[in-house]
């Protein structure tokens, strides 16, 4: 991709949606990462990258108000994060769904907008229309009538995306949507997501352990490793110097002829070699 396309000059994006200053994060007596300052602006497509266990999901839990920071300040849409913010659509990494779930995909998508309501909900037309529109937006209308248990990994991710999208959120938090997909399906899903970012200006944060399927459409990278957080454009963050500082050990970023990158030296033993 050309540099012009990926310029991150501030005029292209709207106001700040997420703002963090000197953020410290952890559980009781374990610090996960600290002193992170970052911001995300409206309409940005952001990858959250880093080795396993670095605290990528923890960032989402903070933004969703499921966990409090240990120190520093964090605002989402101008105020401290709170649980149940309808301006955020969320796709967690873990789902209760497996191949024994005999429930139509459309039902799940519909619950994305009606699942917090009281009553049995017998007048379903607006819900159904919203669900169909969301499935259309991710190119998965034909999956609506299928059983969740019968869908493939890629199909499921589209349905989850529709579920997150159905309430017309302003920000999407997608936790490892690509983790179980092969490269081709990953790229397909990234295209769908990128399309949403562009057509709806929905700010999107996507957790991934491999940046390569994403790299051509990213506006920003949040790289979490070794208790530190680096943020900026992919060109600025994904360099040997910047990642060596982040990991605290010498790390090399290699590029191949097709713009794929390989990060050598910084990975934990469990992570992929190109994370």
């Amino acid at each position: 991709m050309n540099e012009v396309h990926r310029r991150s000059s501030d005029d292209r994006f709207g106001p700040e949606i997420v703002h963090a200053e000197h953020l410290d994060v952890g559980y009781r007596d374990k610090v996960v990462w600290q002193d992170a300052s970052l911001d995300v602006r409206r309409g940005e497509f952001v990858a959250v990258i880093g080795p396993n266990g670095a605290g990528k999901t923890t960032l989402f839990r903070l933004l969703l108000g499921l966990q409090r920071p240990m120190g520093g300040s964090l605002t989402v849409f101008g105020s401290p994060p709170k649980r149940g913010n309808s301006r955020i659509g969320y796709v967690p990494q873990r789902h209760t769904i497996d191949n024994e779930t005999h429930v139509a995909a459309e039902t799940l998508v519909r619950l994305g907008v009606s699942g917090t309501k009281w009553g049995p909900g017998f007048s379903l037309r607006p819900e159904r229309e919203a669900a169909t529109a969301a499935l259309e937006a991710v190119g998965a209308v034909e999956l609506g009538s299928k059983s969740l248990g019968s869908l493939s990994g890629g199909e499921l991710q589209r349905v989850f995306l529709a579920e997150a999208l159905v309430g017309n959120p302003e920000m999407l938090l997608l936790d490892e949507p690509l983790s179980s997909l092969d490269l081709r399906r990953s790229r397909e899903l990234v295209e769908v997501i990128h399309g949403l970012v562009q057509s709806r200006h929905v700010t999107t944060l996507l957790v991934a352990h491999d940046i390569n399927p994403l790299i051509q459409c990213l506006d920003k990278v949040i790289y979490i490793a070794n208790g530190n957080v680096a943020t900026g454009t992919p060109e600025a963050v994904l360099t040997s110097a910047s990642l060596s500082e982040l990991y605290g050990v010498p790390v090399e970023v290699l590029h191949d002829s097709r713009h794929n990158i390989v990060i050598v030296g910084g990975e934990d033993p469990h992570g992929g070699e190109n994370g």
């Binding site: 969703l64 499921l66 649980r83 149940g84 913010n85 309808s86 955020i88 969320y90 796709v91 967690p92 873990r94 789902h95 209760t96 769904i97 779930t101 429930v103 039902t107 799940l108 619950l111 994305g112 699942g115 917090t116 579920e163 997150a164």
Partner: peptide, 15 residues
């Protein structure tokens, strides 16, 4: 139904 089918999302939605 929501909480049973999609626990983590329901929790994030404030259920």
């Amino acid at each position: 139904l929501f909480a049973s089918l999609d626990e983590d999302v329901a929790e994030a939605k404030g259920m």
